[in-house]
Design a protein around this nucleic acid. Structure first.
Lengths: 133, 133
DNA sequence: CTGGAGTTTCCAATCACTGGAAGGTCAAGA
DNA sequence: TCTTGACCTTCCAGTGATTGGAAACTCCAG
């Protein structure tokens, strides 16, 4: 099938399919004699795999590793799990950073009257104090 | 003062100071006759302001708005507060997305034995099922 | 034989940096 | 006086995952 059909079936845009192919994520897709890419069901499966892994925030390089584990039917599931655990930790760290930011922003927002007058503890704290808690 | 001293005092690298200046965040800094930038205390104050706003995840363009509100002594604090609230909402959305990802990853990780055998529900679910909850 | 839909490649922009190259300026030390 | 070295300058490129566009090609229908 051509790239448009693969895009429809996988939910991945043609642009992005070319990018993923270029990054070496896909099993080699053939070419028709007119130069058009020729994808098969395995490629569509890989594209769906990539799409779901991306939706979970895995970076492209880690998805490449996941795909190579998927292709290796003798992989130890330990490796897959380790990858997932590392990634969960990375996301958890980012989430914690966001939580701290939200706490600070909430405190700042509550301290500001938010009316027509210029007094604003938000601006003052940005300029002068450090922000903790 | 020159860029190195401003970097030390503000905690912002010289590279980044030039970038911020280029992006129009700083009040215009002068130049010595040798072409070196000449910063004053106001610039250092702005750099610290930028650094703290960045630490809270504000994008550069919003920091530019915050700085222009800071410079306008007749600003309505309403505008500052609105900016902060919008940003808090943006961060909260990202945090919620991360929370959902962590829930899915946790379920997947728990479903995988993580031993020497190849069976792995993580890979299976990436390829075939959709992931919710 | 013309139009349009689909395809190809390549280049650019996003965002906030970071790094490096190549060169100018200036004070201290030999 | 000459040189070293620590500064400073500008410009260019790369990061990650996409998206957009341009210019050119194939192919099918009208």
């Amino acid at each position: 099938m051509r790239i448009g059909e693969a895009a429809l079936l996988s939910g991945v845009s043609a642009k992005l399919i070319r990018y993923y192919e270029n990054e070496g994520l896909l099993s080699p897709a053939g070419r028709d004699k007119n130069g058009y890419r020729d994808f098969d069901d395995r490629n569509v499966y890989e594209l769906r795999f990539i799409k779901r892994a991306r939706a979970l925030g895995f970076p492209i390089k880690q998805i490449a590793e996941l795909l190579s584990l998927w292709r290796d039917t003798r992989r130890p599931s330990r490796k897959v799990r380790a990858l997932a655990e590392n990634h969960r930790q990375a996301i958890a760290s980012r989430m914690e950073a966001h939580r701290e930011i939200i706490d600070v922003l909430t405190r700042l927002i509550e301290s500001c009257r938010g009316d027509d007058r210029p007094e604003c503890p938000i601006l003052e704290e940005f300029g002068t104090r450090r922000m903790h808690r």
